[in-house]
């Protein structure tokens, strides 16, 4: 039997002012596989992550769903949280109830809450079918290519080179320098640009 924990984030008032977060957690408790569900102000904060770790231990959770912001933002964060509590980081899913729910349905609190519940249900359904995965490894060529040799390219190349790595600084023009070398003195210090 799967043992899923669902953690609903308020994101301060970002989510909680639109979505009924307690209602979402309550609804989640009835989903198949869910043995624990709760809500908290900032799930990504230290205490928030600690809350997840504690719940994993206390309720012997083997899968985790966090309903909060976009996975494009905090998926790596919560995967690490899971890993640190002994749950394979790929037995984790996120429900995006901030960017794709609270923030875009600010005037439709009921609709947003219904949607949040559906998104959590989908995440739970998915996580129940997740299997543990482990990353492979690849080697790294420790040499950088910088495309464009204006101010940005030269500065980046110098910094990387100063750290001891080889850099190729490439430019389509016959010279390095970019737009910068066309400039006269530069603000606010009026020193020369070369």
């Amino acid at each position: 039997m799967k043992r899923v924990g669902v953690f609903v984030c308020h994101c301060g008032t970002n989510i909680a002012s639109v979505v009924d977060v307690k209602g979402v957690a309550e609804a989640a408790r009835s989903f198949p596989g869910v043995v624990y569900a709760t809500d908290y102000q900032y799930m990504c904060s230290d205490p928030g992550q600690e809350l997840i770790r504690k719940a994993i231990k206390e309720h012997r959770l083997d899968r985790v769903v966090v309903a909060s912001c976009s996975p494009r933002l905090h998926e790596p964060t919560f995967r690490r949280t899971c890993a640190s509590a002994g749950v394979n980081p790929y037995l984790f899913e996120m429900a995006n109830i901030r960017e794709q729910c609270a923030w875009v349905h600010a005037k439709d609190k009921e609709g947003a809450t219904r949607k949040a519940v559906d998104l959590v249900r989908a995440a739970v359904a998915k996580v129940c079918r997740n299997v543990p995965l482990s990353p492979g490894t690849i080697s790294i060529t420790k040499r950088a290519l910088v495309i464009g040799a204006g101010i940005a390219g030269m500065q980046a190349a110098l910094d990387i080179a100063d750290a001891g790595y080889k850099v190729v600084l490439l430019d389509r023009e016959p010279t390095i320098g970019g737009n910068m070398v066309k400039l006269d003195k530069t603000f606010p210090t009026l020193d020369c640009s070369a």
Partner: peptide
């Protein structure tokens, strides 16, 4: 500018353009 040109770890490739990029992080 001169600092970049003289740095032993920097190789300049001017009048050059990238035509294709294959591979992936660490191994382009």
């Amino acid at each position: 500018m001169v600092a970049a040109a003289q740095h032993p770890n920097i190789e300049l490739m001017t009048y050059a353009e990238v035509e294709n990029v294959a591979g992936y992080v660490g191994n382009f």
